[in-house]
Design a protein around this nucleic acid. Structure first.
Lengths: 142, 142
DNA sequence: ATTGACCTATGTCTAAGACATAGGTGTAGC
DNA sequence: GCTACACCTATGTCTTAGACATAGGTCAAT
């Protein structure tokens, strides 16, 4: 199978499969004539694993580590448990950040609802943003 | 003022200020002797705007656009309104994605709670991930 | 043999800084 | 004046996970 067929089968783009191949996460045979890659059943299985792990929040580097351990006949499970808990914490942080960002955006939009547009006056760039953010920080002197 | 002082005053890293300077979002004077940048009061004001806008979800490119409009004596307000609504939609999408991801991660962790670690058996890489993800997709034949 | 639609590999690009490196500054001690 | 030495600087490179652009290959219909 060539790259596009593999990609469609697993619901990812051909570029994604090419990317995984480029970083040697997949190692299909190469036709020496035209450099086309030929993906075997084993390659597809492996890709399936990669896609599943990605969908669980593992980074590509995480996945390389996990596969390397498995190929070395070590159980990757402890690593997997450890990584996913770290990723879950990160996700939680992103989540909080995103909630805060959304709140700021919504508040700004609400506050601007009845704010008239204004032409810049030389000491402000955009009064909406500047007045929304307030003093924002120190500015004692030059 | 030099880069570090400016950065500390606004609660960002010196690298951030250097980055904005590199892309000409800030244009401090340069000491021709050692290439050190000297930030004026006006530079600090401008950075303050950039930091405020970033915290509202504007990208650096958005901000460049806004500033360019303002310097051209056009009101940036319509642009600002338009951009922030787009960004808010994006944020909403990310938010949904993040919720789904978090749910998958939590479910996986819960399911693995009492799952024993296992050594790879040759046709699986990590039974936890593979069984969590299920068949995941088609796999008709080579 | 040629066309044309579709496919391929490879190189480059992205956002927003972080990090590494080599060199400059400035104060303290001599 | 000179030297340490801690701290600072500018610049170049690296990061993620692919997307996009380009040049060239494949293959069925003509």
């Amino acid at each position: 199978m060539r790259v596009k067929e593999v990609a469609e089968r697993l619901g990812v783009t051909a570029d994604t499969v090419r990317f995984y191949t480029r970083i040697r996460l997949l190692n299909p045979n190469t036709n020496p004539h035209n450099q086309y890659k030929e993906y075997s059943h084993a390659d597809v299985e492996r890709l399936k694993f990669v896609v599943a792990a990605r969908s669980l929040g593992f980074t590509v580097e995480d996945i390389s580590t996990i596969i390397a351990k498995a190929e070395d006949h070590q159980s990757p499970c402890p690593t997997v448990r450890q990584i996913i808990e770290k990723r879950l914490e990160e996700t939680e942080r992103q989540f909080q950040d995103l909630i805060a960002l959304r709140a700021r955006m919504s508040a700004a939009i609400a506050q601007w609802e009845d704010t008239p547009d204004r032409v810049p006056n030389g000491h402000m760039i955009c009064h909406m943003i500047e007045s929304f953010a307030g003093g924002f920080s120190d500015d004692t002197e030059k």
